[in-house]
Design a binder for these strands. Structure first.
Lengths: 339, 339
DNA sequence: CTGAAAGCGCTTACAG
DNA sequence: CTGAAAGCGCTTACAG
C-alpha cells in the first residue's frame, strides 16, 4: 500500500461513506453508537491520522500558532528567554492539540513580514510576537489588520494591541531602591538595554525615578545592547577614565551584569564590597556566576503561556481585553551586598 | 472584502484562469512573459499569499519540517542546546522557504508518538529527532517506517538511521587525557549522563579508555542526570565519605560541572589547585562561571544545520548515507589548571 | 500552445 | 434520520 491512510480507506473498511467517518470521529450525535465504535476501531486498526491539509482547507483552521521573532531582536535578546517563551507557549498549544511554528526570519521582502506570510497563508491561526521594537511598522500593521496576534511585552504606542508583560518601570525602580535603601549606595550607574525597545526605555525610567526619589548623588546612564560583552565594555569605559566612580551598577539584564561583573573583578574592584551590582531577568545565568547576581525574576514562561491563552481566545472569536501585567519577584543574592 | 485573497481573485483581476495564475507564479515556461508579469503585478497589488493548505493538499508537501523532542519539555528546554539546534535548523529551513514546527509532547497515547502525528498528518514533510534514548521503540519504528527522519546524535543500534553527531568517545577520551597527561592527575572521577542515552554511554567509555591507557590510579564513575544539581549531589556524596579522594573530575556536561564546581568550592576544595574539573558542551555556561570551565565545544547549531540538509535530501527522494560525524574542539580554560 | 476539468482529503449544508 | 454532493484553494494531467 502506498500513501497514507485516508478517510475513504476507513469508510471502505466499515462499509460507510467518508462523511459518516468524519462525523463518527468528531463524535457527532447523529451517528449511531454502533457505527461510531466500528469507525473508531477501523481507524485505529488502519492507523488513520487525519490529513492536516484536508482539514485545514475545509475548516479554515490550521490548528497551529506561530512564534514570531523579529530578526533584529533575535540577536538582542538572550537565547534563554526564547526557550522560556517556547516552553510556555508549547504547553498551552499542546493542551489545545495545536502545533507550534517558529518563525525567526524577519523577511521584509515585498512589504510583508514573517507574520503576514504565516498568517495570510493560513499556516497559523494566530501569532505571538516577542521582542518587537517600538514603532516597528510591521507590528503596527499586524495589530491594525485585526488578525489574531498577541504581543509579549508592553506597547503603549499601540493602544489596540493585546499585550502580556510586566511592569518594567516599577521592577527597575524596586531593584534600584534596594541598592539605595538597603545598601546605602549613592552614586549609581545604569547600563540600559537598547532604547528603541520598550523594556530599555522602561527599565531606565524606573532606575531614574528611584534614584531621584532617594536623592542619589548621581544617576548616570550608558546604553548597552543586552549582550554580555556590552556590559563589560560599559564598565571598561568608565575604568579608562580613572578610578571607578560609582558604588552601584544597575544592569538592564543579567547577561550584561555578568560581563560587567567580570570587568570589575578583573580591574580589582570588590563586588559587592565596594560596588553593588544587580541585573534583570533571572533566566539562568544570574544564579551560576560568582557572586550570584541579585536580579528581577521575569516570568517569561508564564507570560508566554498567558499570551498563548489570549491568542486562542482571539482565534475563537472572543473579545480580549488589551493589557495583562504579570507580577515579578526581586531575587536577592550576593552581588548587591546581601547575605 | 472578507477572507484572504485567493488565486481566483488574482485570476479575475488579470482576466485569466486560476490555473494560469498558478503556472505564472511558478515561473512555468508555457505562460507568456506578458501574462506572467501581469499576474505578478496583480498578485502584488492584491497582496496574494498562497494558501498553505490548498497547496499542501494538492502537492502532498507541507513545506515544513518538525523538531521532535521526546522528553518533557520543561527539563529539555532548560538546555541551551535546543536553542542552538533550533537556530541551525531554522537557517536551513528558511533558505528552503519551509516552516519549522516544534513538537515537544511525547504523546505516547494510542501507540503513536509525536513524530507519527506530525508526519502522518502531513503537517511536516520530515522530522529531526534529538535526545532520543537508546532503544526507544518509537524512534526505531520511525526509522523502520522509512518516513523522512534524521536523528541528531549517534544510534549504533539503528543501522538504517540517518544520524548526525560527534565522536563522543574520542572527545571524552581527549579531555580526560588532557587531565592525565598535561596536569598529571591520577585519581579520576567521571560524573556521567544518563546511561540510557548514547552520549552517556560514549562519554563514559571515552573516559574509561583514556584512564586505562594512561594507567590512572583510579577511574570511578557515578551516574548523573545532566542537570546542575546532580553534579553538586555527586560531589556532595563523595565529600560525605571523608576527604575528597580524587584529583580530577570529568563531568559529562557543563551544567553538572557548574554544580560540582560550586559544591567543591563550598567545601573548601581548591579548583583547579587541588582538583581539576572539566565539562562538556560549551553552550554558554562554561565560559561565565569562576573559574571558567575547560570543556569540549559541541557544534550543536552546525549539527542541526547538517541534519536539516540531510532531511531535505531525504524529502526530495535522494538517497542519503547514514552517518555524519562533525569535529569538536577542546576548549581549554582555567578549571583544569591551565593558564 | 492554451483552456478547463479533475482531484488532493476533509466537513457541512442540502436533498431525500 | 441518512446519503451523497459541494466545495475549501491549489496544481497538473488532459483535451482541444
Amino acid at each position: 500500500v502506498a500513501g497514507p491512510v485516508t478517510m475513504k480507506d476507513v469508510a471502505a473498511r466499515v462499509g460507510v461513506t467518508a462523511a459518516t467517518v468524519s462525523m463518527a470521529l468528531a463524535g457527532h450525535g447523529r451517528i449511531s453508537e454502533a457505527t461510531r465504535t466500528a469507525v473508531r476501531e477501523a481507524a485505529d486498526e488502519l492507523g488513520y491520522v487525519p490529513s492536516s491539509a484536508g482539514r485545514a482547507l475545509r475548516s479554515r483552521r490550521a490548528d497551529a500558532i506561530a512564534l514570531i521573532v523579529p530578526h533584529s531582536s533575535a540577536h538582542v535578546f538572550g537565547h534563554l528567554y526564547f526557550m522560556h517563551v517556547l516552553t510556555g507557549m508549547s504547553s498551552v498549544a499542546n493542551a489545545r492539540d495545536a502545533q507550534v511554528i517558529v518563525s525567526t526570519n524577519a523577511d521584509t521582502v515585498s512589504g510583508g513580514a514573517a507574520y503576514a506570510r504565516v498568517l495570510r497563508s493560513g499556516a497559523a491561526d494566530g501569532v505571538l510576537v516577542t521582542s518587537a521594537a517600538v514603532g516597528d511598522p510591521h507590528v503596527r500593521a499586524l495589530v491594525e489588520s485585526g488578525l489574531p496576534a498577541v504581543l509579549i511585552g508592553n506597547h503603549p504606542d499601540l493602544p489596540d494591541a493585546v499585550c502580556v508583560g510586566i511592569d518594567d518601570v516599577a521592577a527597575s525602580a524596586d531593584i534600584t531602591a534596594h541598592l539605595l535603601a538597603v545598601h546605602g549606595r549613592r552614586r549609581l550607574l545604569h547600563v540600559s538595554g537598547p532604547l528603541d525597545h520598550q523594556t530599555g526605555i522602561d527599565r531606565r525610567a524606573g532606575f531614574l525615578a528611584a534614584a531621584e526619589r532617594a536623592g542619589a548623588a548621581s544617576a548616570d546612564v550608558v546604553e548597552g545592547d543586552l549582550a554580555e560583552p556590552s556590559g563589560a565594555r560599559a564598565i571598561a569605559e568608565q575604568l579608562e577614565r580613572g578610578p571607578f566612580a560609582y558604588d552601584g551598577v544597575v544592569f538592564a539584564n543579567d547577561d550584561m551584569a555578568v560581563g560587567g561583573l567580570r570587568a570589575l573583578r578583573t580591574a580589582g574592584v570588590d563586588v559587592p564590597g565596594r560596588v553593588s551590582v544587580v541585573g534583570f531577568d533571572d533566566f539562568g545565568l544570574a544564579r551560576v556566576v560568582e557572586p550570584p547576581i541579585t536580579t528581577v525574576a521575569v516570568p517569561a514562561e508564564r507570560m508566554a503561556a498567558v499570551a498563548a491563552e489570549r491568542l486562542f481566545e482571539l482565534i475563537d472569536g472572543r473579545s480580549v481585553h488589551g493589557r495583562t501585567r504579570l507580577p515579578v519577584t526581586l531575587v536577592v543574592r550576593r552581588s548587591c551586598g546581601c547575605t
